[in-house]
Protein backbone atom coordinates (compact mmCIF):
# COMPACT_ATOMS: atom_id res chain seq x y z
CA UNK A 1 0.00 0.00 0.00
CA UNK A 2 1.11 3.55 -0.79
CA UNK A 3 1.10 5.61 2.42
CA UNK A 4 0.75 8.82 0.40
CA UNK A 5 -2.42 7.76 -1.48
CA UNK A 6 -5.58 6.00 -0.43
CA UNK A 7 -7.04 2.89 -2.05
CA UNK A 8 -8.72 5.01 -4.68
CA UNK A 9 -5.47 6.76 -5.58
CA UNK A 10 -6.42 10.04 -3.92
CA UNK A 11 -3.53 11.82 -2.20
CA UNK A 12 -3.38 11.78 1.59
CA UNK A 13 -0.89 13.13 4.11
CA UNK A 14 2.07 10.85 4.75
CA UNK A 15 5.13 11.11 7.00
CA UNK A 16 8.37 9.17 7.32
CA UNK A 17 8.77 6.93 10.32
CA UNK A 18 10.33 7.95 13.62
CA UNK A 19 14.09 7.29 13.52
CA UNK A 20 17.23 8.15 15.40
CA UNK A 21 18.39 10.88 13.03
CA UNK A 22 21.82 10.97 14.62
CA UNK A 23 22.55 7.30 14.04
CA UNK A 24 25.61 6.96 11.83
CA UNK A 25 26.08 10.73 11.56
CA UNK A 26 29.40 12.34 12.36
CA UNK A 27 29.65 14.07 15.74
CA UNK A 28 31.99 16.99 16.14
CA UNK A 29 33.31 17.24 19.69
CA UNK A 30 35.19 20.35 20.77
CA UNK A 31 37.28 18.17 23.04
CA UNK A 32 38.24 14.51 22.82
CA UNK A 33 40.85 12.78 24.89
CA UNK A 34 43.89 10.97 23.52
CA UNK A 35 45.91 13.73 21.86
CA UNK A 36 48.44 13.65 23.35
CA UNK A 37 47.98 10.09 24.56
CA UNK A 38 47.57 9.39 28.24
CA UNK A 39 47.57 6.16 30.13
CA UNK A 40 43.78 5.94 29.90
CA UNK A 41 43.17 7.36 26.45
CA UNK A 42 45.12 7.16 23.21
CA UNK A 43 43.42 8.44 20.03
CA UNK A 44 45.82 6.49 17.84
CA UNK A 45 45.07 3.15 19.49
CA UNK A 46 41.58 1.76 18.73
CA UNK A 47 41.66 -0.25 21.96
CA UNK A 48 42.17 2.86 24.06
CA UNK A 49 40.54 5.58 21.91
CA UNK A 50 37.31 7.30 22.95
CA UNK A 51 36.25 9.10 19.72
CA UNK A 52 33.03 11.06 19.33
CA UNK A 53 31.96 8.59 16.64
CA UNK A 54 31.03 6.22 19.47
CA UNK A 55 28.13 8.54 20.32
CA UNK A 56 26.23 7.79 17.13
CA UNK A 57 27.54 4.41 16.04
CA UNK A 58 25.46 1.30 16.47
CA UNK A 59 28.12 -0.13 18.77
CA UNK A 60 29.41 -3.65 18.62
CA UNK A 61 33.07 -2.71 18.32
CA UNK A 62 35.77 -4.34 20.40
CA UNK A 63 37.11 -1.09 21.84
CA UNK A 64 35.67 1.33 24.41
CA UNK A 65 31.99 2.22 24.26
CA UNK A 66 32.16 5.81 25.45
CA UNK A 67 33.36 9.09 24.03
CA UNK A 68 35.46 11.01 26.52
CA UNK A 69 36.57 14.61 26.56
CA UNK A 70 40.00 15.84 27.56
CA UNK A 71 40.58 16.44 31.23
CA UNK A 72 39.25 19.87 32.08
CA UNK A 73 41.16 21.33 34.97
CA UNK A 74 39.88 24.90 34.95
CA UNK A 75 37.38 27.22 33.26
CA UNK A 76 36.11 27.26 30.66
CA UNK A 77 34.68 23.83 31.18
CA UNK A 78 32.47 23.96 28.08
CA UNK A 79 32.52 21.01 25.75
CA UNK A 80 30.35 21.06 22.65
CA UNK A 81 28.94 18.09 20.77
CA UNK A 82 27.47 18.88 17.37
CA UNK A 83 25.75 16.49 15.02
CA UNK A 84 24.62 17.45 11.53
CA UNK A 85 21.49 15.51 10.59
CA UNK A 86 22.07 16.02 6.86
CA UNK A 87 18.69 17.63 6.23
CA UNK A 88 15.76 19.05 8.10
CA UNK A 89 14.11 16.76 10.63
CA UNK A 90 11.12 17.28 12.86
CA UNK A 91 12.67 16.45 16.18
CA UNK A 92 10.64 14.67 18.83
CA UNK A 93 13.30 14.13 21.48
CA UNK A 94 17.03 14.36 22.14
CA UNK A 95 18.87 12.23 24.63
CA UNK A 96 22.48 11.90 25.71
CA UNK A 97 23.44 8.97 27.88
CA UNK A 98 26.46 9.63 30.08
CA UNK A 99 29.05 7.09 31.12
CA UNK A 100 30.08 9.18 34.09
CA UNK A 101 28.25 11.69 36.25
CA UNK A 102 26.02 13.90 34.09
CA UNK A 103 26.89 17.59 33.88
CA UNK A 104 25.51 20.06 36.38
CA UNK A 105 24.44 22.27 33.50
CA UNK A 106 24.00 21.84 29.80
CA UNK A 107 22.32 23.62 26.90
CA UNK A 108 20.59 22.05 23.95
CA UNK A 109 20.63 24.02 20.70
CA UNK A 110 19.31 23.50 17.20
CA UNK A 111 20.16 24.93 13.82
CA UNK A 112 17.74 25.17 10.92
CA UNK A 113 20.31 26.35 8.39
CA UNK A 114 22.97 23.66 8.54
CA UNK A 115 24.97 25.23 11.32
CA UNK A 116 25.05 28.89 10.27
CA UNK A 117 22.86 30.04 13.14
CA UNK A 118 21.74 28.43 16.38
CA UNK A 119 18.76 28.74 18.69
CA UNK A 120 18.23 27.14 22.10
CA UNK A 121 15.76 24.30 22.59
CA UNK A 122 16.29 23.98 26.31
CA UNK A 123 18.64 24.36 29.22
CA UNK A 124 19.40 21.99 32.08
CA UNK A 125 20.76 23.21 35.34
CA UNK A 126 20.28 23.11 39.05
CA UNK A 127 21.12 26.84 39.01
CA UNK A 128 19.16 28.17 36.04
CA UNK A 129 19.52 31.86 36.87
CA UNK A 130 23.18 31.55 37.71
CA UNK A 131 24.14 29.54 34.65
CA UNK A 132 21.73 30.82 32.00
CA UNK A 133 20.02 33.86 33.46
CA UNK A 134 16.65 32.15 33.20
CA UNK A 135 14.08 31.12 35.79
CA UNK A 136 13.61 27.40 36.38
CA UNK A 137 10.68 25.93 34.51
CA UNK A 138 7.55 26.11 36.69
CA UNK A 139 6.03 22.88 37.90
CA UNK A 140 2.94 23.70 35.85
CA UNK A 141 4.96 23.63 32.62
CA UNK A 142 5.33 26.27 29.91
CA UNK A 143 3.24 29.36 30.54
CA UNK A 144 3.68 31.25 27.28
CA UNK A 145 1.41 30.98 24.24
CA UNK A 146 4.06 29.30 22.10
CA UNK A 147 6.99 26.94 22.48
CA UNK A 148 10.11 28.34 24.12
CA UNK A 149 13.48 27.24 25.44
CA UNK A 150 13.01 26.65 29.16
CA UNK A 151 15.45 25.76 31.90
CA UNK A 152 14.86 22.29 33.28
CA UNK A 153 16.49 20.56 36.26
CA UNK A 154 19.90 19.08 35.56
CA UNK A 155 19.93 15.34 34.87
CA UNK A 156 20.25 13.24 37.98
CA UNK A 157 23.13 10.83 38.53
CA UNK A 158 22.03 7.21 38.66
CA UNK A 159 23.20 4.80 41.36
CA UNK A 160 25.92 3.55 39.03
CA UNK A 161 27.22 7.11 38.61
CA UNK A 162 25.97 7.61 35.05
CA UNK A 163 23.06 9.76 33.94
CA UNK A 164 20.73 10.67 31.10
CA UNK A 165 20.01 14.05 29.63
CA UNK A 166 16.61 13.74 27.99
CA UNK A 167 14.60 16.40 26.24
CA UNK A 168 11.24 16.12 24.55
CA UNK A 169 10.04 18.97 22.32
CA UNK A 170 6.76 18.75 24.20
CA UNK A 171 8.64 19.88 27.30
CA UNK A 172 9.02 23.33 25.81
CA UNK A 173 5.64 23.76 24.20
CA UNK A 174 2.34 24.49 25.87
CA UNK A 175 -0.30 21.77 25.75
CA UNK A 176 -2.91 22.02 23.05
CA UNK A 177 -0.58 22.94 20.22
CA UNK A 178 -0.97 20.56 17.30
CA UNK A 179 1.98 20.00 14.96
CA UNK A 180 -0.23 19.60 11.90
CA UNK A 181 -1.98 22.91 12.40
CA UNK A 182 0.58 25.05 14.20
CA UNK A 183 3.27 26.66 11.99
CA UNK A 184 4.94 27.93 15.17
CA UNK A 185 5.27 24.39 16.52
CA UNK A 186 6.41 23.14 13.12
CA UNK A 187 9.19 25.70 13.19
CA UNK A 188 10.04 24.86 16.79
CA UNK A 189 10.65 21.18 16.07
CA UNK A 190 12.53 21.67 12.80
CA UNK A 191 16.28 21.19 12.94
CA UNK A 192 19.10 20.38 10.54
CA UNK A 193 21.71 20.16 13.31
CA UNK A 194 21.66 19.49 17.03
CA UNK A 195 24.23 20.77 19.49
CA UNK A 196 24.70 19.89 23.14
CA UNK A 197 26.84 22.26 25.16
CA UNK A 198 28.06 20.63 28.36
CA UNK A 199 28.56 23.76 30.36
CA UNK A 200 29.55 22.70 33.84
CA UNK A 201 30.57 19.35 35.27
CA UNK A 202 29.15 18.07 38.50
CA UNK A 203 31.54 18.69 41.34
CA UNK A 204 30.88 16.99 44.67
CA UNK A 205 29.73 19.46 47.27
CA UNK A 206 30.32 22.48 45.10
CA UNK A 207 27.68 24.18 42.99
CA UNK A 208 30.23 26.13 41.01
CA UNK A 209 32.52 23.51 39.57
CA UNK A 210 34.29 26.09 37.47
CA UNK A 211 36.00 26.98 40.70
CA UNK A 212 36.99 23.41 41.31
CA UNK A 213 40.56 22.51 40.68
CA UNK A 214 39.83 18.82 40.29
CA UNK A 215 40.43 17.65 36.71
CA UNK A 216 37.23 16.40 35.17
CA UNK A 217 36.20 14.93 31.88
CA UNK A 218 32.81 14.38 30.33
CA UNK A 219 32.02 10.92 29.06
CA UNK A 220 28.97 9.79 27.13
CA UNK A 221 27.90 6.68 25.26
CA UNK A 222 24.98 7.56 23.05
CA UNK A 223 23.49 10.66 21.49
CA UNK A 224 20.03 10.09 20.10
CA UNK A 225 17.95 12.54 18.08
CA UNK A 226 14.52 11.02 17.70
CA UNK A 227 12.60 12.58 14.85
CA UNK A 228 11.02 12.29 11.48
CA UNK A 229 12.60 13.34 8.22
CA UNK A 230 10.82 16.61 7.44
CA UNK A 231 8.79 16.18 4.26
CA UNK A 232 5.79 18.44 5.04
CA UNK A 233 3.37 15.54 4.75
CA UNK A 234 4.29 14.77 1.14
CA UNK A 235 6.63 11.76 1.52
CA UNK A 236 6.75 8.60 3.55
CA UNK A 237 10.49 8.12 3.39
CA UNK A 238 13.83 9.84 2.86
CA UNK A 239 16.52 8.48 0.58
CA UNK A 240 20.04 9.56 -0.39
CA UNK A 241 19.98 11.60 -3.61
CA UNK A 242 22.46 11.25 -6.47
CA UNK A 243 25.05 13.17 -4.47
CA UNK A 244 24.50 11.05 -1.38
CA UNK A 245 22.54 13.74 0.45
CA UNK A 246 19.42 12.70 2.28
CA UNK A 247 16.22 13.96 0.63
CA UNK A 248 12.52 13.23 0.83
CA UNK A 249 11.07 10.82 -1.71
CA UNK A 250 8.45 13.41 -2.63
CA UNK A 251 4.91 12.63 -3.78
CA UNK A 252 1.84 14.81 -4.41
CA UNK A 253 3.56 16.76 -7.22
CA UNK A 254 6.12 18.25 -4.85
CA UNK A 255 9.90 18.40 -4.95
CA UNK A 256 12.90 19.65 -2.98
CA UNK A 257 14.80 18.14 -0.04
CA UNK A 258 11.76 18.70 2.22
CA UNK A 259 9.07 18.52 -0.50
CA UNK A 260 8.83 22.24 0.14
CA UNK A 261 7.74 23.37 -3.31
CA UNK A 262 5.62 22.26 -6.25
CA UNK A 263 7.23 20.57 -9.25
CA UNK A 264 7.54 22.87 -12.26
CA UNK A 265 4.36 21.74 -14.05
CA UNK A 266 2.39 21.32 -10.81
CA UNK A 267 1.55 24.95 -10.14
CA UNK A 268 -2.23 25.10 -10.52
CA UNK A 269 -2.45 26.14 -6.87
CA UNK A 270 0.08 27.30 -4.25
CA UNK A 271 2.22 24.84 -2.34
CA UNK A 272 0.90 23.88 1.10
CA UNK A 273 1.92 21.49 3.81
CA UNK A 274 -0.33 18.44 4.06
CA UNK A 275 -2.63 18.14 7.04
CA UNK A 276 -4.46 15.15 8.44
CA UNK A 277 -7.65 16.36 6.78
CA UNK A 278 -6.29 17.55 3.44
CA UNK A 279 -3.26 16.39 1.47
CA UNK A 280 -2.89 19.75 -0.30
CA UNK A 281 -1.21 18.02 -3.23
CA UNK A 282 0.26 20.24 -5.90
CA UNK A 283 -1.93 20.00 -8.96
CA UNK A 284 -0.69 19.72 -12.52
CA UNK A 285 -1.73 22.53 -14.81
CA UNK A 286 -4.53 21.66 -17.17
CA UNK A 287 -2.97 22.11 -20.60
CA UNK A 288 -4.69 19.31 -22.51
CA UNK A 289 -1.33 17.79 -23.28
CA UNK A 290 -0.21 20.74 -25.40
CA UNK A 291 2.25 22.44 -23.00
CA UNK A 292 5.13 21.32 -20.82
CA UNK A 293 5.40 24.44 -18.71
CA UNK A 294 3.02 26.67 -16.81
CA UNK A 295 3.13 29.42 -14.25
CA UNK A 296 0.99 30.30 -11.27
CA UNK A 297 -1.15 33.46 -11.33
CA UNK A 298 -2.48 34.48 -7.94
CA UNK A 299 -5.09 36.82 -9.36
CA UNK A 300 -6.60 34.10 -11.53
CA UNK A 301 -6.44 31.75 -8.55
CA UNK A 302 -8.43 34.18 -6.41
CA UNK A 303 -10.91 34.85 -9.20
CA UNK A 304 -11.49 31.11 -9.57
CA UNK A 305 -12.49 30.82 -5.92
CA UNK A 306 -9.06 29.46 -4.99
CA UNK A 307 -9.42 26.49 -7.30
CA UNK A 308 -7.08 27.01 -10.24
CA UNK A 309 -4.34 29.54 -10.97
CA UNK A 310 -2.16 27.77 -13.52
CA UNK A 311 -1.47 29.40 -16.89
CA UNK A 312 -0.01 27.18 -19.60
CA UNK A 313 3.08 28.47 -21.38
CA UNK A 314 4.08 27.89 -24.99
CA UNK A 315 1.01 25.96 -26.10
CA UNK A 316 1.99 23.67 -28.97
CA UNK A 317 0.08 21.94 -31.76
CA UNK A 318 -1.44 25.27 -32.85
CA UNK A 319 -3.39 25.65 -29.62
CA UNK A 320 -3.73 28.77 -27.50
CA UNK A 321 -5.33 29.98 -24.28
CA UNK A 322 -4.74 29.58 -20.57
CA UNK A 323 -5.32 25.84 -20.77
CA UNK A 324 -4.31 25.44 -24.47
CA UNK A 325 -8.01 24.83 -24.88
CA UNK A 326 -8.72 26.62 -28.15
CA UNK A 327 -7.00 26.98 -31.52
CA UNK A 328 -4.68 29.82 -32.38
CA UNK A 329 -5.55 32.24 -35.12
CA UNK A 330 -5.57 30.64 -38.56
CA UNK A 331 -6.66 27.25 -37.15
CA UNK A 332 -9.99 25.71 -36.17
CA UNK A 333 -11.13 22.85 -33.93
CA UNK A 334 -11.53 19.54 -35.65
CA UNK A 335 -14.74 18.33 -33.99
CA UNK A 336 -13.87 14.75 -34.82
CA UNK A 337 -10.79 14.77 -32.61
CA UNK A 338 -10.35 15.08 -28.87
CA UNK A 339 -9.08 18.38 -27.52
CA UNK A 340 -5.96 16.58 -26.33
CA UNK A 341 -5.23 15.19 -29.83
CA UNK A 342 -2.08 16.60 -31.42
CA UNK A 343 -4.16 17.32 -34.52
CA UNK A 344 -7.11 18.81 -32.69
CA UNK A 345 -6.50 22.12 -34.48
CA UNK A 346 -6.55 22.16 -38.28
CA UNK A 347 -5.27 24.93 -40.50
CA UNK A 348 -8.04 27.14 -41.92
CA UNK A 349 -6.52 26.82 -45.39
CA UNK A 350 -8.61 29.75 -46.69
CA UNK A 351 -8.45 30.13 -50.44
CA UNK A 352 -5.97 32.91 -51.37
CA UNK A 353 -8.42 34.42 -53.88
CA UNK A 354 -11.88 33.27 -52.83
CA UNK A 355 -11.51 34.16 -49.14
CA UNK A 356 -11.60 37.69 -47.77
CA UNK A 357 -9.08 36.78 -45.04
CA UNK A 358 -6.94 34.00 -43.67
CA UNK A 359 -8.73 33.54 -40.35
CA UNK A 360 -11.62 31.12 -40.20
CA UNK A 361 -14.33 30.53 -37.62
CA UNK A 362 -12.50 28.64 -34.81
CA UNK A 363 -15.42 26.30 -34.29
CA UNK A 364 -16.72 25.58 -37.79
CA UNK A 365 -13.57 26.31 -39.82
CA UNK A 366 -15.61 28.52 -42.19
CA UNK A 367 -13.40 31.08 -43.97
CA UNK A 368 -14.83 34.56 -44.74
CA UNK A 369 -15.80 34.38 -48.40
CA UNK A 370 -15.94 37.16 -50.97
CA UNK A 371 -19.30 37.84 -52.68
CA UNK A 372 -20.46 34.93 -54.77
CA UNK A 373 -17.91 32.55 -53.29
CA UNK A 374 -18.84 29.55 -51.16
CA UNK A 375 -17.31 26.47 -49.54
CA UNK A 376 -15.55 25.96 -46.17
CA UNK A 377 -12.33 27.38 -47.62
CA UNK A 378 -14.10 29.70 -50.11
CA UNK A 379 -12.79 27.76 -53.07
CA UNK A 380 -15.95 27.54 -55.23
CA UNK A 381 -18.40 29.91 -56.82
CA UNK A 382 -21.87 29.84 -55.30
CA UNK A 383 -24.77 28.53 -57.39
CA UNK A 384 -25.77 31.24 -59.92
CA UNK A 385 -22.21 32.55 -60.01
CA UNK A 386 -19.32 31.76 -62.31
CA UNK A 387 -15.60 32.32 -62.13
CA UNK A 388 -14.34 35.63 -63.49
CA UNK A 389 -10.80 36.64 -64.46
CA UNK A 390 -10.63 39.22 -61.67
CA UNK A 391 -8.93 38.07 -58.43
CA UNK A 392 -10.75 40.90 -56.61
CA UNK A 393 -14.19 39.57 -57.53
CA UNK A 394 -13.48 35.94 -58.39
CA UNK A 395 -17.13 34.97 -58.84
CA UNK A 396 -19.69 37.06 -60.73
CA UNK A 397 -23.36 36.54 -61.22
CA UNK A 398 -24.27 34.61 -64.33
CA UNK A 399 -26.15 37.09 -66.55
Amino acid sequence: PDPCHDEGGAPRACVPGLVNAALGREVLASSTCGRPATRACDASDPRRAHPAALLTSAGGGAGPLCWRSDSLARAPLNVTLTVALGKAFEVVFVSLRFCSAPPASAALLKSQDHGRSWAPLGFFSSHCRLDYGRPPVPATGPAGPGPEALCFPAPQAQPDGSGLLAFSVQDGSPPGLDLASSPVLQDWVTATDIRVVLTRPTAPGDARASEAAVPYSYSAAELQVGGRCKCNGHASRCLPDTQGRLACDCRHGTEGPDCGRCKPFYCDRPWQRATAREAHACLACSCNGHARRCRFNMELYRLSGRRSGGVCLNCRHNTAGRHCHYCREGFYRDAGRALSDRRACRACDCHPVGAAGKTCNQTTGQCPCKDGVTGLTCNRCAPGFQQSRSPVAPCVKIP
Partner: peptide, 23 residues
Protein backbone atom coordinates in the same frame (compact mmCIF):
# COMPACT_ATOMS: atom_id res chain seq x y z
CA UNK B 1 -25.08 21.46 -57.79
CA UNK B 2 -21.38 21.24 -56.93
CA UNK B 3 -19.45 24.03 -58.59
CA UNK B 4 -15.88 23.45 -59.73
CA UNK B 5 -13.11 24.79 -57.55
CA UNK B 6 -11.65 28.14 -58.55
CA UNK B 7 -9.09 27.77 -61.32
CA UNK B 8 -6.10 29.93 -60.44
CA UNK B 9 -4.91 29.83 -64.03
CA UNK B 10 -7.97 31.75 -65.17
CA UNK B 11 -7.25 34.85 -63.10
CA UNK B 12 -5.67 37.85 -64.74
CA UNK B 13 -3.21 39.37 -62.29
CA UNK B 14 -2.14 42.25 -64.57
CA UNK B 15 -3.61 44.99 -62.38
CA UNK B 16 -3.24 43.08 -59.09
CA UNK B 17 0.33 41.88 -59.17
CA UNK B 18 0.80 42.85 -55.48
CA UNK B 19 -2.15 40.64 -54.49
CA UNK B 20 -0.95 37.59 -56.36
CA UNK B 21 -0.40 34.72 -53.90
CA UNK B 22 2.86 32.87 -53.96
CA UNK B 23 2.35 29.35 -55.19
Amino acid sequence: EVMPTLDMALFDWTDYEDLKPEV
